[in-house]
Computed example of a mutant assay.
Amino acid sequence: MPLGLGVRLITSNKHGIVALDKPAGVMSHPNTDEETKRALLQAHYDYDEEVFTWKVGDVEHRAWLINRLDSPTSGVILLALNDEINTTIKQMFSTHKVSKIYYALVKHAPAIPAGSWSDQLKKNVYRGKKLIKGGQLIPAKTRYQVIKTPTGGFPVALLRLMPLTGRTHQLRVQCQNHRHPVVGDRTYGSFSFNKEVAMETGERRMMLHSGETSMRYAFKGQMHEFKAVSELPEAFATVMRFRPGLHAGKAPVPMASKAPSGRSALEGRRFRR
């Protein structure tokens, strides 16, 4: 496979399911030919059939994109090497029979350490040729659990998120709706807080990671299991272990030089939780 920059193979099986580890900033698929170098695979992508194609010698190869991740999101993403297994697993995704675990570093810890969020998210719809922004409400549900809440640094919490529905930007929107925006999210996040984190740690990526995908599926008359795991990126630890006055392991960006006497701009500051 012509893997994109930083993309690595996690696992695959005999039926043609392939799990890749996608870095933040890499696109699930290119929208134009110019974006191919930024995509999961550096290959031609047919948007209608949702399939990558490339040649090795005279042999043409194909890989169907089973699911997608937003460009800023890292972690497990699945491909299929034949249309039969592609159809089977996509059907499981559409009926919510695939278990997915995400990790998000968010601003502030939820008051209740474990629970579920049920929301009605706005979706754009077309009426004829007219676009109605937010014209439809669709249900979204996610289970969450607080994994870690560091003390003495940024007021953040590491959450384990288990979406029970699959809506566009669901986790990012739900985190924002419940006042726990994902750190580094440039669309739904806290822009001032993102700026502080970037100043002190040098980390600008969105802190949302697809950590695990697993399923039990029927194929050719038998049941099979598939599981892929991606470790949490170091960027999460960099932000969580930051303490004012201590080197966070990253070179500060130029704006950090505004702090008096070379001290952290956040030293002595008390965040509200």
Rank of each mutant, 00 (worst) to 15 (best):
Arg205Phe: 08
Tyr217Thr: 06
Val183His: 08
Leu131Gly: 02
Ile101Trp: 01
Ser116Arg: 14
Lys141Trp: 07
Pro113Gly: 09
Gly128Asn: 04
Gln174Phe: 08
Arg160Ile: 00
Arg204Glu: 15
Lys133Pro: 04
Thr149Arg: 14
Lys107Phe: 05
Met206Pro: 02
Tyr217Gln: 07
Ser118Asp: 15
Ala157Lys: 00
Gly166Ile: 02
Arg143Asn: 15
Met206Ser: 06
Val183Lys: 05
Leu161Asn: 00
Gly221Thr: 06
Gly202Pro: 04
Lys130Leu: 08
Ala109Gln: 12
Leu208Thr: 06
Gly153Phe: 00
Asn177Ser: 13
Lys123Gly: 04
Thr149Ala: 04
Asp185Cys: 07
Arg179Thr: 12
Lys133Asn: 09
Ala157Thr: 01
Leu208Asn: 07
Ser192Lys: 12
Val182Glu: 03
Lys123Gln: 15
Ser214Ala: 14
Tyr144Arg: 07
Pro139Gly: 11
Lys129Gly: 02
Ile132Thr: 02
Met215His: 05
Thr165Arg: 02
Ser210Arg: 02
Val197Phe: 01
Pro110Glu: 08
Gln174Asp: 12
Gln170Thr: 06
Cys175Arg: 01
Trp117Asn: 10
Gln170Pro: 00
Lys148Gly: 00
Gly166Gln: 03
Ser214Ile: 02
Leu208Gly: 06
Ala157Met: 01
Ser116Leu: 11
Met206His: 04
Phe193Pro: 01
Gln145Phe: 09
Gly115Asn: 12
Pro113Lys: 11
Gln176Gly: 08
Phe191Cys: 00
Lys220Val: 04
Glu196Trp: 07
Gln174Glu: 15
Asn177Ile: 06
Lys129Ile: 04
Val182Phe: 09
Leu161Ile: 03
Ser192Trp: 03
Ala140Asp: 13
His178Ser: 09
Val182Arg: 01
Arg127Asp: 09
Thr151Asn: 04
Lys123Trp: 06
Met206Leu: 13
Lys220Cys: 08
Pro110Val: 08
Ser214Val: 03
Pro181Ile: 11
Leu171Phe: 07
Gly153Cys: 02
Met206Tyr: 04
Ser192His: 08
Ser214Gln: 12
Arg179Phe: 14
Ala218Gly: 05
Gln136Asn: 10
Arg127Ser: 07
Ile147Cys: 11
Asn194Gly: 13
Pro150Ala: 01
Val106Trp: 02
Val125Pro: 04
Lys129His: 07
Arg186Glu: 14
Val183Glu: 09
Pro181Trp: 09
Asn194Val: 07
Leu208Ala: 09
Arg172Leu: 12
Ile138Ser: 14
Gly115Phe: 13
Leu121Ser: 11
Lys148Met: 06
Pro110His: 08
Thr201Ile: 10
Thr151Gln: 14
Ala140Thr: 13
Pro155Met: 05
Glu203Lys: 12
Thr168Tyr: 11
Thr168Glu: 12
Ala104Ile: 04
Tyr126Ser: 10
Pro155Cys: 05
Glu196Met: 14
